[in-house]
Computed example of a mutant assay.
Amino acid sequence: MQDNFYEQFVGAHESTLYKVVNIEMKLSIVFGVICLFSTAILGLLGIILCVLCAIIYFGLIILKRKTYVDYEYDFTNGEIDIVSIGDKIKRKLIVSFDVKDIELLAAKDSDEVREISNKPDKILKCYPKDTEEKIYTIILSGGSGRARIEFVPDKDFLNLCFQKNPRAVKRGFF
């Protein structure tokens, strides 16, 4: 049996918000250092300002990780893992499933997706917010219940899915 492995990386673009957060982080570090050195003059107020700068800095780290998210789609012998990568650092497994559990894989705006009457309400959006790629929808059945996943696979990824589950993958869209 031949192993099928494919990895697709979907990178995000640096948005204006991401760039502003980076600048704000640098400013909070500079302001925090200034406050730290001025604690001799300001006393307790200087310490409070240092703590405030630290809180703002760590809040900006969290915001930065949420504004710049890459995605990785891994296909290993019919098992698909979708991982988010926050700020190029923190990896988080979003969903893992077998291709055989796919009820439908089609373009998001296709007739096949529109015609499904009992679509799951919850949607996992597994693509960068600013993507210009064509978005596809997966309707999963089995396992822990039904799910709807939106992602932006390339042609090779779609072909591998078709090889493992030709009944569910609609070829009319690639």
Rank of each mutant, 00 (worst) to 15 (best):
N22W: 03
A40G: 15
L27W: 09
K125L: 08
D156C: 01
I138V: 15
Q2G: 09
C50T: 04
Y6G: 07
V10L: 10
G78T: 07
G86P: 00
L105S: 07
L158V: 04
F5A: 01
V33R: 01
V113I: 15
F151M: 15
K108T: 15
I80S: 03
M25E: 03
I116N: 11
L36W: 13
G145N: 04
K90I: 06
K66F: 09
G32A: 06
D121H: 11
R171H: 03
L160Q: 08
V169Y: 08
V113N: 13
I123A: 14
I149D: 09
T67F: 11
V152E: 15
V152G: 06
F97P: 11
S28G: 02
D81Y: 06
D101R: 14
T16C: 02
E150H: 13
G32V: 03
I102H: 04
L104M: 12
V30Y: 02
S117Y: 12
K64A: 01
I123G: 14
R146I: 04
K90M: 03
K155C: 04
Y18V: 04
F75C: 04
D154V: 14
K155S: 05
A107D: 14
L160Y: 09
Y73G: 00
N118F: 15
A106V: 02
E133T: 11
E115W: 05
N4A: 09
N4D: 09
E133K: 15
F157Y: 11
K119I: 13
Y136T: 07
A40Q: 13
S141A: 05
L60T: 02
Y57V: 00
A106C: 14
D111Q: 12
C126P: 03
T16M: 04
D154G: 12
T39L: 10
D70F: 04
I23Q: 05
S28Y: 02
S141H: 09
Q2M: 05
E150T: 12
L27I: 04
V95C: 04
S110W: 10
Y6T: 00
D130F: 08
I139A: 12
I82T: 05
C50S: 08
F97L: 08
G78P: 13
F75E: 03
G78M: 07
N165P: 05
D98G: 06
I47D: 00
R91L: 03
N77F: 09
R167L: 11
I56E: 01
T67G: 00
D130T: 13
L44R: 05
N159I: 10
